[in-house]
Simulated scan of single mutants.
Amino acid sequence: MPELPEVETTRRGLAPHVVGRHVVTVTVRQPRLRWPVTPQLARDLPGRRIDALTRRAKYLLLAAGDGHLLMHLGMSGRLRIVPTDTPAGLHDHLDIRLDSGQVMRLNDPRRFGCALWLQHPPDEHALIAGLGPEPLSPEFSGDWLYARSRGRRAAVKVFIMDAANVVGVGNIYASEALFEAGIHPSRPAGRIGRVRYARLAAAIKQTLARAIDAGGTTLRDYIGVDGGTGWFQLSLAVYGREGQPCPRDATSVRRRIIGQRSTFFCPRCQI
């Protein structure tokens, strides 16, 4: 599943092609995504100017006048910019044709993504209203994590993957940030002190920033706007490295299921 770095990489790749352009037509070939694509999208979006393309958590928000298109890539979705005459493939479900002669095209083999046309502020939508702070924003800090974690018995890895506490820390990046902070992923969130949470918040910021700079992580499905893959997988310290030596102390990296997800860690340097 594309995580925050992959979605941010997609946003940065799309923005120069779409912002400031007018929508000519919208073609919906398959409306049955995770939630139905309503007819209002093809009716209301054409003729509007795209004012901005932003990101909230793993959602992309295309602002067009008083409306917003909220998009999620689901498990295997991708957005590309292609020439208008590019034939549509089997899983190309949505085209937004621009006045530049290009098309923003959604490809989603598993159909777990979404394209929702909103005519009210996006922050009021149920998918966004309850989200925690952006991890790269000033609002996110060790003090925030410390305050949110008091009394929590859940494993810290589960805690930081909860979007109500901080958005966008997916499975790969949670394992990597906890390794950088030297915190065992199964330690109860409420038993971690303020100083260690400051270290963890810094590790989350650093890990995600590095992943964005590398264009995200390609392990299975993710492909960028330009058809290329992300490169952060070449820098992974523990994720997917079960049985291989820890880059700090050469202890074998272990794997454990925490919160129903595979979790990778060093049993010696993460306590």
Results as ranks from 00 to 15, higher is better:
1 M>C: 15
2 P>A: 10
2 P>K: 10
16 P>R: 09
16 P>I: 00
19 V>M: 01
32 R>Q: 04
37 V>D: 01
38 T>F: 04
38 T>W: 08
45 L>H: 00
47 G>D: 02
49 R>W: 01
50 I>W: 00
52 A>P: 05
54 T>L: 11
58 K>G: 10
60 L>T: 13
68 H>E: 07
77 G>T: 00
78 R>S: 00
79 L>V: 05
85 D>S: 06
89 G>V: 04
91 H>P: 03
94 L>C: 02
98 L>V: 03
105 R>D: 01
111 R>Q: 07
114 C>L: 15
126 A>E: 15
128 I>T: 06
129 A>E: 09
131 L>S: 04
137 S>C: 14
137 S>N: 09
138 P>H: 09
138 P>C: 07
139 E>C: 12
140 F>A: 03
140 F>M: 06
143 D>V: 07
147 A>M: 11
150 R>M: 12
151 G>P: 09
155 A>I: 13
162 D>H: 13
162 D>M: 12
163 A>S: 14
164 A>D: 10
167 V>K: 14
169 V>E: 11
171 N>V: 14
171 N>L: 11
173 Y>G: 07
179 F>D: 01
181 A>F: 02
193 G>A: 00
194 R>S: 01
196 R>G: 06
197 Y>N: 01
197 Y>A: 08
202 A>I: 02
202 A>S: 07
206 Q>N: 15
209 A>F: 11
215 G>Y: 08
216 G>N: 10
218 T>F: 13
221 D>M: 15
231 W>M: 12
232 F>W: 10
235 S>E: 08
244 Q>D: 06
246 C>A: 05
248 R>H: 12
248 R>L: 13
251 T>V: 13
252 S>L: 15
256 R>H: 08
256 R>Q: 11
257 I>Q: 11
259 G>D: 04
261 R>G: 04
263 T>H: 07
264 F>T: 02
268 R>Y: 00
270 Q>D: 02
271 I>C: 10
